[in-house]
Lab assay of single mutants.
Amino acid sequence: MPVRRGHVAPQNTFLDTIIRKFEGQSRKFIIANARVENCAVIYCNDGFCELCGYSRAEVMQRPCTCDFLHGPRTQRRAAAQIAQALLGAEERKVEIAFYRKDGSCFLCLVDVVPVKNEDGAVIMFILNFEVVMEKDMVGSPAHDTNHRGPPTSWLAPGRAKTFRLKLPALLALTARESSVRSGGAGGAGAPGAVVVDVDLTPAAPSSESLALDEVTAMDNHVAGLGPAEERRALVGPGSPPRSAPGQLPSPRAHSLNPDASGSSCSLARTRSRESCASVRRASSADDIEAMRAGVLPPPPRHASTGAMHPLRSGLLNSTSDSDLVRYRTISKIPQITLNFVDLKGDPFLASPTSDREIIAPKIKERTHNVTEKVTQVLSLGADVLPEYKLQAPRIHRWTILHYSPFKAVWDWLILLLVIYTAVFTPYSAAFLLKETEEGPPATECGYACQPLAVVDLIVDIMFIVDILINFRTTYVNANEEVVSHPGRIAVHYFKGWFLIDMVAAIPFDLLI
């Protein structure tokens, strides 16, 4: 008679799926529990143990900040960024110097990925580790590398530091407007667009060049630039800015003055950032001319202004700041037409079709709590990747769950009947059967004279019903998954307890 339990259901295979997918890609990662103190490590794979030199037993239950890997060259700011990422709910990448158990130093890129439950609360953290440099290539500990984003994938490793954006290309926007319009339909740009040429040739750093990471940081200074100062900065030398009595002219307006920039070969870094931020506020060169004239017309309804409409929906549905990093990277690809469009465009503009998908598509409701890094690593669709929660398995109709209350009560009843059979069957065979043979035949009273025979008949009927119930009862397979398919249940029961239950259900007393 089957006594099969499996009270692990309803099970959740999400954690096993993450481990299996990460292991298949030869990654070095740990999984931490966000619900406990210090976000203790609950799993670390073999790749991480080989990377740091510690065994799994030495890593388990330690804080996922990996303070046991810190050393003299470990930056405090990087460690603080990892700790801050564990307090938030967004994906974050941090470069930090770690030390192995043998004392060797290596520069590592740590990717902190939160995993949320159905309520939107962070319950786990996945920390992925990628070695960037070994100890002989690690720089000085005073050099802070965590304020910069990861290198873009479309640049060669040897040319990542030679990417320079020439400031004269930004200063000569109005001069290039006529050349853009003359391109017409034969050019790649839309009317009114501004073409910015980027020099990728390796050259020595000069005062006129600005690194790509500095251009990325310009967006942080746009908020500090007032509207009046932006307007004066875009007017140009024809209309000098008016300053109040006793007030000095704005240095932001002076930063885009061609006369002032041409007199000296070098520009201050602050002026460069502010000038680029001011130019980015204009949607095209037409807006710059309109600002000089004193009238700013409404933005025209053409394809170039609607190019950012799908980007707005993608940004609203993005799951991490990696989408913004990807957008900034692609927006700086050289030799393309940049349409400086305000994100607050007309909502009635139709979304044009684009061959290049900048932001990841909208994630469906079932995966809105899973970050983009987890979705990318697992390579699963929205119909396959579940949320991290207890999910009731989908069972067929008329199927009994093996952990249901009805099955528990039924098993206790069958257990009592088995005990009765084990006690009274030998007793009936030894004593009652002998008395029946010696006594007179009682054929007239039937079952009324033999109450134990009636009980034995009921017990046999219950055993037959138990066999039928076992054909529709779920079970737990070797992978700790609840199986509810009727065919698989029948095959599993035939290979197991079916023969024993059938022999126990045969009414031998009635056959004798």
Score class of each variant (00 low, 15 high):
P347H: 15
S182Q: 14
R5N: 10
L378M: 09
T353Y: 05
I18L: 14
M133R: 12
L170K: 11
N12H: 15
V215Y: 12
C108E: 01
E91A: 10
V8R: 11
P237N: 05
D199V: 01
T375A: 06
L267M: 07
T174C: 05
V180D: 11
I18W: 10
R20P: 01
S351T: 05
K344I: 04
A156R: 13
L87Q: 15
V36N: 11
C108W: 01
S263I: 04
E365P: 14
S275P: 14
P237Y: 11
K21Y: 11
L107T: 10
V41F: 01
G184L: 07
A185L: 08
T375K: 09
R159M: 14
V138I: 07
A217E: 13
G53S: 01
L171Y: 10
L171H: 09
E357M: 14
L343A: 11
C265N: 13
I42K: 01
I330L: 11
V3M: 12
C39Q: 13
S250H: 03
G103D: 06
P300M: 14
A190V: 13
K364D: 08
T353Q: 13
K28W: 01
V196D: 02
C44T: 06
A204F: 15
R271P: 14
K344W: 06
S351N: 15
N369W: 11
G103N: 08
I42Q: 01
L349C: 04
G149Q: 06
H302P: 05
D213P: 07
E214W: 04
R100N: 04
M124D: 01
H309L: 07
F22T: 07
C265K: 14
L87T: 08
P386D: 05
S283D: 08
L349G: 12
V8D: 15
L210R: 05
H143M: 13
D102T: 05
G189L: 15
R271N: 13
L212R: 07
E91Y: 15
S322A: 09
S304W: 14
F98P: 01
G226Q: 06
L210V: 15
A185Q: 05
C64G: 14
A382N: 06
L385T: 11
L324Y: 13
I333M: 15
L107W: 08
S261R: 10
A307H: 13
L86E: 01
I358M: 09
C66G: 01
G184T: 05
L107K: 13
